[in-house]
């Protein structure tokens, strides 16, 4: 089944983004901790390290969005949804990805490309002393993450189609677990 295999490939890609985000988070945690310690104990401040905090933070949550989509972590209002059959749920997801998620992600990604490209062409860097150069990298995370969310959405769409074709059983549904 080509569609099933494609869905699996896309899911693997989304999981991989999740792993990268997790690593980014750990780096961010120790980055902030390091900055606090060096400032308080050694009276030493690095603007570059301080800026790195939000670079890691931003990349972490932006790349986390497609991963979370695949992992079923985005909140739904389940007043009606929860009582529906698997096929009806799949229909809603198919409809939602096609009419809401795809256009939103693609449009933001589209404008995000120009946004990052201009920063690249200007050679934009931080305006503060000792700040980080190459501002375009973090700006490029916007189109990249939105494009990845679109890809992850394709996975969701395929999953809906495969479910409608009877290739997933109800117990395939992974509820959010923490």
């Amino acid at each position: 089944m080509f569609l099933l295999r494609l869905e699996q490939t896309i899911n693997a890609f989304s999981d991989w983004l999740g792993k990268i985000s997790a690593v980014l988070f750990v780096l961010m945690l120790f980055n902030v901790f390091y900055d606090v310690i060096t400032r308080y104990l050694f009276n030493n401040v690095s603007i570059g390290m301080q800026e790195l905090e939000w670079h890691l933070f931003a990349a972490m949550f932006m790349l986390g969005v497609p991963f979370t989509l695949k992992a079923g972590g985005h909140v739904r209002v389940d007043l009606i949804y929860e009582g529906l059959s698997v096929k009806k749920k799949a229909l809603i997801d198919l409809f939602g990805t096609l009419t809401l998620l795809f256009p939103f992600c693609l449009l933001v990604a589209w404008y995000g490309v120009d946004f990052a490209r201009e920063s690249f062409e200007l050679g934009e860097s931080s305006g503060d002393p000792g700040g980080l150069p190459y501002r375009w990298i973090i700006k490029a995370v916007i189109p990249f993450a939105f494009f990845c969310t679109f890809i992850s959405g394709v996975g969701m769409m395929l999953r809906s189609i495969n479910t409608l074709n009877g290739h997933h059983r109800s117990d395939d549904y992974i509820p959010t677990q923490h």
């Binding site: 400032r39 009276n43 030493n44 401040v45 603007i47 301080q50 800026e51 305006g127 503060d128 002393p129 000792g130």
Partner: peptide, 24 residues
């Protein structure tokens, strides 16, 4: 020396040259 001060931009750079720590 080691003065932790919120002072962005070029003025921060000047202070940093004298050993102060511009801080975000």
């Amino acid at each position: 020396q080691g003065l932790k001060m919120r002072i962005p931009g070029f003025a921060g750079e000047v202070l940093a040259k004298l050993g102060a720590n511009p801080t975000n």
